[in-house]
Design a binder for these strands. Structure first.
Length: 153
DNA sequence: GCCAACGTTGGC
DNA sequence: GCCAACGTTGGC
């Protein structure tokens, strides 16, 4: 079992958007970065857990916990000509962009990035590193335990 | 809206 | 395959 952190802009897909979907489940569409894609395509397993993070907003931080609900599959939006995420260089036979579906397990209390920075034991969490831009990152089991206490304690 | 950090592109 | 120029991300 691997733990992850996945970023979403609230204007794109908010935690409440997700909570209001049928089955609270959605394709994690729109990732157009190779490193993040590789994590999803090559390393994510159905049943893995991930922190749901809001970025590019007034209050960045953790808002929930999601479960990886499917095996990796091609991102459907890359083939939709009218989509913002359409990629003319991709094709059905050899899709360039891959993703998974996620299901909301728990809408948690909000933990701000500032709060996280106040916990020295979380210092090397990737999302807190300077210059971090990856929208999908790994979370160690140790960090996950600490975060779970913060989220539920 | 600023800007540092990082990723991608493309000419050579 | 180098690297300058450009684009994007995302906290502040």
């Amino acid at each position: 079992m691997q733990y992850w952190l996945m970023k979403s802009e609230p204007g794109e897909l908010s935690i409440d958007d997700l909570a209001n979907l049928p089955g609270k489940k959605i394709e994690w569409f729109g990732v157009r970065n190779y490193q993040a894609r590789n994590f999803m395509r090559d390393e994510m397993k159905k049943g893995d857990l991930a922190l749901f993070w809001h970025s590019s907003c007034k209050e960045p931080g953790i808002y929930g916990i999601v479960k990886i609900a499917t095996s990796p599959h091609p991102d459907s939006t890359q083939f939709v000509v009218t989509s913002h995420y359409y990629d003319p260089k991709s094709n059905i036979e050899n899709p360039r962009w891959w993703c998974v579906d996620v299901e909301l397990l728990q809408k948690t209390c909000y933990i701000s990035i500032g709060t996280l920075r106040n916990h020295p034991e979380l210092g090397d969490l990737q999302v807190l590193q300077k210059g971090n831009r990856l929208s999908v990152t790994k979370v160690s089991a140790k960090h996950w335990q600490i975060l779970n206490k913060l989220l539920n304690g």
